[in-house]
Nucleic acid binder design. Structure first.
Lengths: 140, 140
DNA sequence: GTTCAGTTGAAAATGAGTTTCGATACATCC
DNA sequence: GGATGTATCGAAACTCATTTTCAACTGAAC
């Protein structure tokens, strides 16, 4: 995926955070993982860049990135997933194999800042559930 | 909540499953819990009906109900939630206190059975994220 | 190069959810 | 109503993702 990590690094430096090999590796792993990666996948990919990376640091860095708004965190089928912040989009989730694909349409007409029954709405999350081409084939 | 549990009990009997005090209690707890209850809440409420109920049985019964299609299972903020099957609806989730409220509108135009990019869509899940009236007050 | 606080990673702790297995109690038969 | 067989129960043990702890390490500044 094309994602420029330098703004993240700059933001860290400017806030007094350190730019370490471990953090670079997690960012790199996240980029390579593509859409909606789980923690293990990021860990596996990041470890190729920085072999002595610990899983704990992956958790910590992903959490940091999420708190700073660089990545989105969500869950599907008991798996926590992270993805680099991108233009608003949703997901197609395969109930057979668990793969996740991006869906760029958004049919939700509730703007951020709107009020619904007293709730101040700041965002939303939509998943279309179903079966990917491969799993459809298997089910026949 | 108004939910008639007798069809569930009948279905169980007709399939050779046993209608036990523990299972009745879990159903009762689920009814009392209202919209989108987590396992602990169901356990706590069901235990009032049947004090020697074990947590394991709550997990097992909720899983059974989900497999048979009587309840929906979903996750939010790391918490697994179950709710009795009801007319199609979505949820308002408070990012402050975690409470969940029902939202009866559905702006998603993708019918079950439609195909999106090769995916066969069988359903969807939508959550509006934001802050409930109480949490809005606290944030001031 | 020295310093020092932010960061790391191994190990231990936590906690939700699952499995195991002997005990229990529904549903059926008589 | 009581005996029987098996589905179900619940306590304890287990699994595994995630978090906490803490001594060692290392960016960044001087």
């Amino acid at each position: 995926m094309s994602f420029d990590t330098s703004p993240v690094l700059q933001a860290w430096r400017s806030r007094g955070r350190r730019v370490t090999a471990a953090r670079r590796a997690v960012l790199e792993g996240l980029c390579r993982a593509g859409c909606a990666a789980d923690v293990r996948t990021v860990y596996r990919l990041a470890k190729r860049v920085h072999p002595r990376l610990g899983l704990v640091t992956v958790y910590r860095t992903l959490d940091l990135l999420a708190r700073e708004g660089w990545v989105q965190r969500w869950e599907e089928g008991g798996v926590v997933r992270y993805e680099l912040d991108q233009p608003h989009h949703h997901h197609l989730v395969c109930l057979g194999c668990g793969q996740v694909r991006r869906w760029d349409r958004c049919p939700v007409p509730v703007e951020s800042g709107a009020t619904v029954g007293g709730f101040l709405v700041t965002g939303h999350r939509l998943e279309l559930l179903g079966y990917c081409p491969t799993c459809r084939e298997v089910m026949r």
